[in-house]
Design a protein around this nucleic acid. Structure first.
Lengths: 113, 113
DNA sequence: TGCAATACATAAGATTCCTATGTATATTTG
DNA sequence: CAAATATACATAGGAATCTTATGTATTGCA
């Protein structure tokens, strides 16, 4: 089962930033697989969504890139810039607050981890 | 402070359905005010988003309407249909699951209410 | 050798929301 | 009492974000 994609909307940048803050350095395909793995296939990031997002993050100066070759195949690694680290904290805080609000509004009992 | 609207995307229908399930009968403007009130202004539903959504819910057969006149001013009440009640439960369950997934993925500590 | 996986990328289209605008009535306030 | 604000509906145009589809190319495996 995959969550209807409308729920994912607006959260992709936050997810990517968070993963980069945990792993220092990741490439696009790796990010799609990591999300799949961590969410037990419940969230699938499509490449058509991810790559433009990564390019946007780069343009915003939130990530830096370095290209590496694995044999003849190119791999583009992304890392958080200092501004990206700040932005990540902001995004996580905002999302956290949004969820608290939604939990209250919808009367949902969160799984107390 | 208002949450950046991108986060709200995909949740509007769920919010409306939930409010209708709590209040039996509400009109559009009332819904915008209720959300504002319950979220302490943190979530603002614009009319440009709400009315088309209500019309969509009606077309989908999830709500029924009745028009009332307050003096000369029209008021259009919305209520959940049986199918709407079922859908509400589904949507809430889905959103709840999505949040659990996101909490894990983003390493967020939910406010244990 | 052919299929699946890895790895990048973009274009066209769908969805969902916001901003702006429009209409009209009712209430509050200076 | 006039003007501003609040109530109450509605839609069109545009922005943002994602999906689907497509394209290119390399690598691993059966």
């Amino acid at each position: 089962m995959t969550y209807s994609s409308e729920l994912i909307k607006g959260t992709l940048k936050t997810i990517v930033l968070k993963l980069l803050s945990d792993h220092k350095k990741m490439y696009g395909y790796e990010i799609t697989q990591k999300v799949k793995e961590l969410t037990l296939d419940k969230i699938q990031i499509t490449e058509g969504a991810l790559y433009p997002t990564l390019h946007a993050l780069e343009e915003e100066g939130l990530v830096t890139t370095e290209t590496e070759y694995i044999g003849k195949r190119v791999r583009k690694y992304y890392s958080l810039s200092p501004a990206g680290k700040v932005k990540t904290k902001e995004k996580l805080k905002e999302f956290s607050g949004f969820m608290d609000t939604m939990v209250f509004l919808l009367g949902i009992k969160p799984k107390t981890a």
